[in-house]
Design a protein around this nucleic acid. Structure first.
Lengths: 123, 123
DNA sequence: CCGACCTTATCACGGTCGTGTCAATGTTGG
DNA sequence: CCAACATTGACACGACCGTGATAAGGTCGG
């Protein structure tokens, strides 16, 4: 049978995050492992993968943990997302020639790309 | 002729932001006024409006200036936006019964709502 | 020409973020 | 049973955020 979960120290070892940071990352809701009956964190393959890609995300683009946390908030709090979108929408994007319609087209294309993975699939 | 622009102190007066904060808000790209030939900031009606709604945005939802700045970055840096979206997408949203397909449906609906303003219009 | 305004740059200060470390306590397995 | 591990909570520390204040200088209008 598979001992498919790692303890926090083992997870720290294989992901490069410190145990302290694994707890912190959990506290801001980014990677939340299951718990054993006694309350021990159990890191599965999925968690480990996301911890590694999280590190890449922070390195590649210049993003902070709190900012990813905010992106998550945008994802889960629809009213917040709408309010922010509305405010940004009303901005006259200084650089040349980016009309509202123009931007909407690109925005739409982007989401089509993302959603297409599911909507275009088998029914 | 319309003296339709305010100086920074006047803008500060009518928006409630301090002159210092108006410069700071400009530095993070949120509200960027035009400049006079001599380099004076010129706040028009649009800027004033957005400064007021910005204050509401921060008060109503619990958001920081830097976070709105990050949302702006998400809006302008497509590669960043895609990377963050991809990472968040791979998260197994702990709460009950929220399957990936389920979430995609809602996500799609939300954007339909937003994009509908343009796509649903006259063609 | 001069006072009232604008500009940028800098120092300061409390608050939060990211992170380590330590203490006090609970759990596990040989 | 006990050593090795886990848990939460707290203190600490450098770095940056939000904000005010102040300095050194440019611009404007009467």
């Amino acid at each position: 049978m598979a001992t498919e979960t790692l303890t926090i120290n083992e997870a720290a070892e294989t992901t490069g995050w410190s145990p302290r940071m694994l707890r912190y990352i959990e506290s801001i809701g980014l990677v939340v492992p299951e718990r054993s009956p006694a309350g021990y964190r159990l890191f599965g393959a999925g968690e480990l993968q996301r911890l590694r890609t999280l590190r890449e995300l922070l390195n590649d683009h210049d993003v902070a943990l709190g900012e990813v946390g905010f992106a998550l908030r945008l994802r889960t709090e629809a009213s917040l997302s709408d309010a922010v979108d509305a405010w940004l929408q009303a901005r006259p994007v200084r650089p040349q020639g980016t009309t509202a319609a123009d931007w909407l087209k690109r925005e739409q294309a982007k989401h089509m790309r993302l959603l297409g993975l599911a909507t275009g699939g088998s029914s």
